[in-house]
Simulated scan of single mutants.
Amino acid sequence: MGLFSRFTDIVNANLNSMLDKAEHPEKMIRLIIGEMEETLVEVRSTAAKNIAEQKTLARKVTSAQEGVAHWHNKAEIALSKGRDDLAKSALAQKHKCQAELTQLDSENTPLTDLLTAIQADAQRLQDKLNEAKRRQEALLLRQESAEVRLKVREKAVIHNIDEAMAKFERYQQKIDRLEAQVESYDLTENKDLSTQIAELEQDDHVEAELAKMKKKVVNG
């Protein structure tokens, strides 16, 4: 893909649309920024080459202008000395310098126009790159915010679980206390029954002893 066709695609790209459709917007924005930075380097490199060429043309233009002035002055000197032949030769050299100057001007005009266009394109691309970096920062902020919110939610869930377990523990303790009360009643009832039976046994012994004493008195 040519530099300027790729540049046009990048500058005309709708970042919002591309990011909305992307499966991973953060990866897409990194790729876009990388492509823009690479293209911007190439655009600036092309601009630098054209500037260098323009400077070379400018030096040649200056040299040709100096040549025109130089040979014009030589022609005047030759005429003042009555040397028409030398004056004619000097004017011929002057015309060559003028022709070179005209050619240089014709080369410099489109080069100047191209350089102006490249500089404008570089600025457009830089603006687009700045926009992409702003979008990247916005995405990073959204990601950080989402991660913080997720941590908050996770902590809230853990807190809810801990609270539920604490409630369960309290319920368990309440049930344990109820069971303990039931067991205490059972123990009390069992103790009363044993006492009653022991008393019955003691009554039997008393009755037996009483009967024995009565029998002894009667037989006595």
Rank of each mutant, 00 (worst) to 15 (best):
I175F: 10
V148P: 03
I29V: 11
K88T: 07
G2A: 10
L31G: 04
A164Q: 14
A156C: 04
A13V: 02
M18E: 08
N219H: 13
I51K: 03
K81T: 06
Q103L: 15
S63Q: 11
G220A: 14
G220V: 10
L111H: 00
V68D: 03
N108T: 14
L79G: 03
A48F: 06
L193I: 03
T188Y: 11
Q143N: 11
A166V: 07
K94R: 12
G34F: 01
I118D: 01
C97M: 13
T39P: 02
K155Q: 05
A52P: 05
L31H: 09
V41L: 11
S17G: 03
L111G: 00
L193Y: 04
S145C: 06
I77K: 09
A69R: 10
R134F: 05
I118E: 02
L91C: 04
D186Y: 06
E147M: 14
N108C: 13
R142S: 14
K74D: 12
R6K: 10
A64S: 05
R153L: 15
F7V: 08
S194A: 09
L125G: 00
L114A: 13
E131G: 02
L19V: 01
L178R: 08
A58Y: 04
D203F: 01
K96Q: 11
R134D: 06
K133I: 04
V218D: 14
A58P: 03
V217Y: 07
A52M: 09
L141E: 14
K94C: 03
N160C: 06
Y185F: 11
T112H: 07
A208C: 09
D105Y: 09
K81W: 08
S184L: 02
Q143P: 02
A166Q: 09
E147C: 07
V217T: 04
A87Q: 01
L193W: 02
P25E: 05
A92K: 11
E37G: 02
P110D: 07
A92M: 10
I158H: 15
T8K: 15
N160A: 07
A47F: 11
K215C: 03
N73I: 04
N160R: 09
Q172A: 15
S80N: 14
T112V: 06
Y171P: 03
E183H: 04
R6Y: 02
H159T: 08
M165G: 02
E76V: 12
L210R: 15
A90L: 05
L141W: 13
L139H: 03
G34H: 03
C97H: 13
K81M: 10
F168N: 12
E38K: 03
L3R: 00
P110G: 07
L19G: 01
A117M: 12
